[in-house]
Structure formats: structure tokens, C-alpha cells
Nucleic acid binder design. Sequence first.
RNA 1: CGGGGUGUAGCGCAGUUUGGUAGCGCAUCUGGUUUGGGACCAGAGGGCCGCGGGUUCAAAUCCUGCCACCCCGACCA
Length: 573
Amino acid sequence: MRMSNLYMPTLREVPNDADIISAQLLLRAGMIRKLVSGVYSFLPLGFRVMKKVERIVREEMDRYGAQEVLMSAIQPREIWEESGRWENFGPEMFKLRDRHDREFCLGPTHEEYFTFMINNELKSYKQLPLNLYQIQTKYRDERRPRFGLVRAREFIMKDAYTFDVDQEGLEKSYNNMWKAYESAFDRLGFKYKVVLGDSGNMGGQISHEFIAITPNGESTIAYCDHCDYAATDEVAASNFTQTISDEANSEMEKVLTVDIRTIEELESFFSMKGDRFIKTLLVKAEDDSRVFAVLIPGDRALSLIKLSKHVGVPEENLMMLTEDEIYGMTGSLLGFAGPFGLKENVEIIADRRIFNIKNGICGANIKDYHFKNVNLIEDDYSVSEDLILVEAGDNCPSCGMALAIDQGTEVGNIFQLGDKYSKSMNATFLDKDGKAKHFIMGSYGIGISRCVAAVVEQCFDDKGIIWPLAIAPYQVVVTIINTKVEAQVDAAEKIYEELLKKGVEVLIDDRNERAGVKFTDADLIGIPMRITVGKVIDQGLVEFSLRTVGEKIEMPIIEVFKAIDNELSKINR
RNA sequence: CGGGGUGUAGCGCAGUUUGGUAGCGCAUCUGGUUUGGGACCAGAGGGCCGCGGGUUCAAAUCCUGCCACCCCGACCA
């Protein structure tokens, strides 16, 4: 491709609405453009990268036995009514009506449609297992789109669905997809971890998430460097050793604590560490049917997912009480809540570790008062072994060493759905014994466009993007220093033709620009290899440099082809 | 959805406090000089100042309604 003709509108300045590095660089490199909040278009260079990501994912899916299809993005209300998600998916679903007032949505995901289709077409166990996938545009009307391609409202996703006769078959399909994902992500060239995911409200079924390690990512994961334990922060078991005081129990006392609300303020007021406090958090079910007071050690945070499992309310329906609601339940203000004197309908849930706190401190449910010398007794409460968000340094549940915490971007997930959809949509096949059984399903997603962003989040420097060779929009750029110098142009054109002949993906920068502009653009758009044709062409030499290294090495033209072959041979296929 | 901020040329911004004919840098076009890490000179084009209503002799500027975008929170692949 000739850069004199390439639609590559690079920007010198950072667009003011680009919030993370990947969005800034992709916009500046002329690879994407934003139309409205959370909706992006891909320009030639960006589209090439995305197609390469797609190709890698596609090859690995195919290699592991999945079959590609393309389902419609537009779906009728009826199939979503069957699963109950027309309502439950909530305002995130883009809904529309046709001229006859019939209702549709733009698919945010495709469990319903696949289940519906399979149920119509597939009737015998002999046709199972089955693994179908597609790569397609998905729509989710996110409440708050941000982070460029990472949380978009329109995005490209690979979604796959497996259908098996039983749990054993599902586990095989699941492990198979796990391997396919590892192969694909290894080839994409970013660092990632596979972590135990939230099994959500699906009744304890297994899921895993593939998290690209990115410093500003939205997902927090806990992992162990000494064994292979890894989980999202809300799910990871928190095991820590409490310091248990050996002092004798003292009599509980009410203490005036004017305007002292936060644990931090309490620590300095009482001159005690946070682990001596009993924090009381008020949480309710969204429909107001139940209210919980959750007791946890003062220096730790609550995991809503763990609470959700303990009380049997789906996590998305749990919410913290507002200050007004707290007043209603405790008769006091935010910051003074405690386990004593709550309204009768409040269920008190305790993390077991608060019973190790001797002569602790908790809110008194009276404005400006706390109790000290509190010693709670297990028998009085609904006790959970673990309600707490994991922290760095907690003990690994599998080997006991210290866990580390990292931020990341979820680029893939795999779910064991079981019969969740086949049951609600009554999708069955006939088993060996002639009886109708529900399909045992799995679903598997990869955020294709999100992967593009995740790679950039990991691969950049102060000059721009550094694409891994496997997904770079072009592999080589031939830079002509001065297009007025015939010898340079001739040599560059010959090199360009030769590389094209060899099947190398190559750009030639034949623009009548100064060298600096060309270097800056080449660095910004992140082309892995650059051949610079300049003055030393008179001696039959060109310069070769790698974007990762930067250093230019003079070499004869023949050598540069070898160097390129050598780099290309490193691509993992 | 709650709180905050911002909307002025393709991009980044000033001008708004104190109303008086819309500016700067980059980008674009023309001519020339240049040509190894975002050149220089001279000239040119480009604006419903987010949209609507109001106040005023006069509104980018003041008032008001709406919209969009961004941030923080809540929520979520």
C-alpha cells in the first residue's frame, strides 16, 4: 500500500474525550473514529488489525471443532420472552419496533436465538455434541460507555454456544474451548490470566474469565504466583490471619463520637487499628423484600457476590442503602450503624471473623455514638465463612502463599450454562432411551474489538503503538527519506515490489513529507519493521529497525530481506 | 439514574467575569524556499459560537428550556 494514497488521518493532539491510552492512540493513529458515545468506526489500519484478530480467533475456534455461522443481529421479542430476559436484561438492551409495531431488539448476546434454532432443528442425541460460533456486531446500551473500545455500546464479539447431552459432555466442550482460547490469546501477543469467574445467579455453575493484564483495567483479579490459583476479586476467597488480642472481655460502653463516621476517623479517634472495628453495612434486595445488616471486620471491604450467595439474592438485585433508608432502618445516620437495636425485619449477617475481635468497636445506631468493648457471640447471627473482598497479601486458598492483586480487561469468558436456557425455553432432544431431555449448554465469548484495545493497552511507548507482528496492520514500512532523490525512490520502489512479491504486508511511505513526519507516523501507527532508504543508498545500504527496539542498523539490501524473513518466522501460527 | 464539568473552524484551545462586526496554534489549499525525527516565508479558504425561546438598539457573552459529550458514583461482557 502506498501511504500517499492511504486513508490514515493521524492526529497530532489527543482528542479531548479519549479517556484511556488505547483510545487515545487508536484515534491519533487514524485507526478508529467515534461517532457518538460508545460507538466507533474502524478506518483502514484499525480494520486490518481487527480482521487479523478475528482471523486468529476463527482459526483457533475451527481448529477446536467449532463451526462458524452468522445469526441475525435483529431478534424478535418473542424468543426473549421465553427465557424471561426481555424484562430481565433491562435497559441495556437496544429495543426497536417495526412498522407493524412488532418489537425487536438488537442482539446483546445470542443464547436465546441459538437455543431456539437448535430446538427447532436438532432432535436426536446422535447429532450431539455441537459447537457453533459467530463473529458479529453486538449491541448493549451501556449505562455509561467509556474507555474507548473497552466499554462500547456497539462492539464486535465472537460468541460460541455448545450443546451436549449431559454435564460430562459439557465439561469436555468447556475444556476444549478453554484450550482454544489459550491458543488464540497466546497468538494475539498479550499477557493475560485465566481466572475463576462469578457463577452469578446461575446456581453455582462454573465460569472462567480471560483477563488481559492492563494497569487501568476495570476488572480486579487476585492470583497466586506460587500455584495456579486465580479468581476475580469478588469471588476470590479471602483468607487472612487476624491479630487476636488476649485481653479479657470488658463491659460494653457507649462512647460519644461526634461526627466520627468512617473507619479512618474512628481509627484515629480511638487510636486503634481498623481490625478492631466491626463494620456494619446495610444492603437490601432491590424489591425491598429483605434488608441485611452485614458485619465485617472494619479494615475490609464487602463482596456483594459472596453476600449474594449467602442470602440467595442475585447480586444484581442487591444494593447498598441510601442515607435516608439507613435512617429508616437504624434510626441513625450513615456512619453510626451497628448490630444492636436495628428494626426487626433487618437480617443480620456476620462474617465469622468478627467473632475473633475482642473488645471491639461498632456503631450504636444513635447519631454520634459508638459502642466500645463489644464482644459478639456467634450463636446470635447468621454466620458466613467469607463475605469479604480479597486483598493483596491474603493467603492463597490453594497453597497458602500470599496472593497478589492486578488490574485487567476481560477479553474472554467461558460459562457452563447447564440447562438454564434449554429449560426455560423448553429445548429438548431425544436421548438413547427415547426420552426428551434438555440440552446441556455452554456459552463462550471473546470481545474482538476489546482485544484490539487490550493489546494497545499493553503495547505502546511515548511515540505510539507497538503492534505485535501477528496483528500489525502492516508488517513493514519502507520509508523514503527524500522523494526528490531519484536513487532513493528507485531503490525503495524495488524493495517494495520485492516484498510484495514475497507476500509481505508492506507500506511504502512515498509521501512528499519531511523525514521527521514519516518517522513519527510510522512510530505512531506501530509498524513492527521499518526499512529506511536514505543517503547511504549510494553505497547500496539501507537501514533496518524494529519498532520494539528503535535502533537503526545499516545493511545491504539483500540482508534486509533476510532480517525480515527472520522476524516473520517468529510469528506463532 | 444522582452529583459535577464542558460545548466556539477537521483537531486542540482563547474570548463569556464587564454585551459592541469571531480569534490563536495545528491541519487544509496556492506559490516559493526546503528535505534524516512533526520545516520556513507569503497568501487563501473554512464558523447557525450545541439547539430553541427570552432580555436588549445590540448576545458566543445575560436569563431560560432542551440536547450532546466528559468526569465521579451506582451498575455491568
